[in-house]
Design a protein around this nucleic acid. Structure first.
Lengths: 140, 140
DNA sequence: TTCCTTACTGAAAATCATTTTCAATAAGTA
DNA sequence: TACTTATTGAAAATGATTTTCAGTAAGGAA
């Protein structure tokens, strides 16, 4: 199962969006990184591939990629504007506090906890966010 | 063990900050709510207690309260600008998606998960965020 | 209490991120 | 190849937050 940035472009096309040079540059940039990138960082990197790119187009393209669940916003203490390629299925994030690298992991078993909290509080729990922060192998 | 907004004012004072009418209004507002409030919402509410209050002072006061760990920022899909009185010790958030009410809970046992992820990824894990979203007893 | 230093204030201006507007361009179907 | 219309970048507008600044007042010292 190999995925490439072409897959994202196909998805855009399949949803009635046009595939343009500007969008290719943005898609290639976000697809090809393991670090969460802000719109401004995407702009800087993508402009190396396509000089005429405008920041506005970066915002608009990220919006569409998020809508198609191809990327997701990353929340951090320092800010919540960065995006990363989305994980497949229900996954959680592991972030390196030093270099900003992002990894996904699955296999959380929060059912017991969730049910217990639901019972105690009376809430009907519908989703959860779990994120781990630490130092990656390079940084520690 | 009863806590009142006076405790927060004492804390401000103990850290060399002055206790002013503007700060009382902000502190009273944030202390006395179970919903996460944005700076602008704090401003609107606090101005009922102290008409001359400026929005800038709200920002500055929230900054200090956060610095003293008396309040904490609440991250939500819709935005991350809201604050709520901080939980005591290591607590997690439970948010009502309908009315925005916030509750705290403890007793997460993520040690097993954390260690397992650390082993698999090589990361040295240092902290975690866990948040549950759902509907409170009133809203469901 | 009164004085005095200096932190604090609100208003206005500046900054920064994001969104909207708009006329020109180009994707991709017919 | 032609044509419709989504997309583009630039500029302007918006919205949130921060900085600047001169006047005010908190609270320790006398």
């Amino acid at each position: 199962m190999t995925t490439s940035s072409e897959t994202w472009l196909e998805q855009l096309h399949d949803h009635g969006y046009r595939v343009t040079a500007a969008r290719r540059a943005v898609v290639d940039t976000v697809f090809g990184t393991t670090h969460a990138l802000t719109p401004s960082e995407v702009y800087d990197t993508a402009r190396k591939k396509y000089r005429a790119l405008g920041l506005v187009t970066v915002y608009r393209t990220l919006e569409k990629l998020e809508e198609l669940h191809l990327i997701q916003r990353v929340h951090q203490p320092m800010g919540c504007q960065a995006f990363i390629a989305a994980g497949i299925g229900h996954q959680h994030l592991l972030l390196c506090q030093q270099c900003g690298q992002v990894e996904f992991f699955e296999g959380d078993d929060l059912d017991t906890l969730t049910k217990s909290i639901a019972r105690k509080t009376g809430y009907q729990i519908q989703e959860h966010w779990l994120q781990l922060f630490g130092l990656c192998t390079n940084c520690k």
